[in-house]
Nucleic acid binder design. Sequence first.
RNA 1: GUCUUGUUAGCUCAGCUGGUAGAGCACGUCACUUUUAAUGAUGUGGCCGAUGGUUCGAAUCCAUCACAGGACACCA
Length: 505
Amino acid sequence: MAFENKFIQQRIEKAEILRKVGINPYSNDAQRNTTIAKYLNVNSDVADKENARDENRHYIVSGRIKLLRIMGKASFLQIEDESGVLQIYLARDNLPEGFYNDIFKKLIEVGDIIEVAGYPFVTGQGELSLHADALKLLTKAISPLPEKFHGVTDKEIRYRKRYLDLIMNADVRKTFKIRSKVISLTRRFFEDKGFLEVETPMMHPIAGGANAKPFVTHHNALGIDRYLRIAPELYLKRLIVGGFEAVFEINRNFRNEGMDATHNPEFTSIEFYWAYKTYKDLIVITKEYFEYLFDHLDLPTQLPYGDFEVDFSKFSEIPLIESLSTIGGVPSEIVNNKEKIADFLKSKNITLKPGLTLGQLQGELFDAFVEKKLINPTFITEYPVEISPLARRSDENPDITERFELFIAGREIANAFSELNDPVDQLNRFEGQMAAKESGDDEAHEMDEDFIEALSYGMAPTAGQGIGIDRLVMLLTNEHSIRDVLLFPAMKPIHNEELNQEEEV
RNA sequence: GUCUUGUUAGCUCAGCUGGUAGAGCACGUCACUUUUAAUGAUGUGGCCGAUGGUUCGAAUCCAUCACAGGACACCA
């Protein structure tokens, strides 16, 4: 890329002039002795002192210049570091001879990262500031910052150039701090419960553990294709077979599907597996997990999400079939009858693929009439076996599985079940999935013979759960696009890049 | 994938029924030692997303494409 923009040229020239007068525009000699937040905190008593200042205190702060107000022989600037914003008062007569007019006014500008030394004082307008006696340039910015008042609002720029977004929109940092905390708290919660964090492969010979289209990559030395994982599930269960009794993995999954407000091609989830437990234990630990998160994030349990108010202290639990009538308003007499459900859905103008089973039709009813109504956290339990290819059958009713999904604000947040550990049953279900694949369902599970073999050695009764971290963070931060909780969301290439790629192929 | 809205200066945006482009901020110059998006004066700054078409003439109308936002569909 060429720095041909005239503003950039101007600034490069300024950097050159600085070099000529012996000032390194990219100094590596940072002497900061406090952060802005600490400075503001420690000096909050200065307002009560004589002349609202304390010349005996001396601080060196640094940050990026966000605003600059030159008023003749004195200037105010606002600098920002990660912790906050500080106003600097700079006067010609407090600085070395010639520095103010020849260096500062001509060669230092908004966007530059500087270091300022001086003492605390409060301005006539009542703002705790720093009275500077030295200013040093640390880093010259040769690209100008966006407009100081409106900043950068264009979503495309904000997503593609997240660094600019972070410079200009301090609030964005909050979202990503919450995200970071959620991940570290999640890790700590499960470790405290005795779970072992593990890392399983992201390049799979068979893409299993979910219904999704995988990305394909190629291993040159072996001459074989690999799939980026769509879920870590089958590997984590192999570890339970191997004798670990509680494992979890927090990491990325990759799905080669559409992108929209709730789908990014790579997304983060936690999956955990717990031997000698059932999905009922998972309901308990999930409630504890949310309580733990809210405690440590210092969030109120009632949070706004768009038009809703979600009460995270009110978890409820209801079997899927029951929810169809009590929450979805579907007549209870039809929910166990294939033909009647099909007729009902048709009467609501919902088109169906032919040949759906009863369980699949019940799933359709749920999606159409129940899901969006689940605002407060709700565990939907007892899923039909046809839509739960990896879950264990209920001992009482072979048509349903020991499974739940957790819904909050009308969205699925977690999926959990008592794991299927009968290797013959698992084999049969894989075969069913393969039949579905043959008949055109390219998201059906693939046969994983090694996984079947693992199960054949015996996996203790185990419960497992996955939680979508991105969507959880969206809920906690009241964000409605997954791109707002991903530092670098996937974006289509701009035209030039795309052409280059095509040429290489 | 479908529908819809947008793309104009570094940024935020105007630009009517077609007559070859405007503001604010930023930047340059000048003034100004307690400002808060500082202020006043003055100046520079543009391949109007791309390609075609209609027209004497297109930022403006039409078509195609690209990217983005929103909605819907699909999807554990």
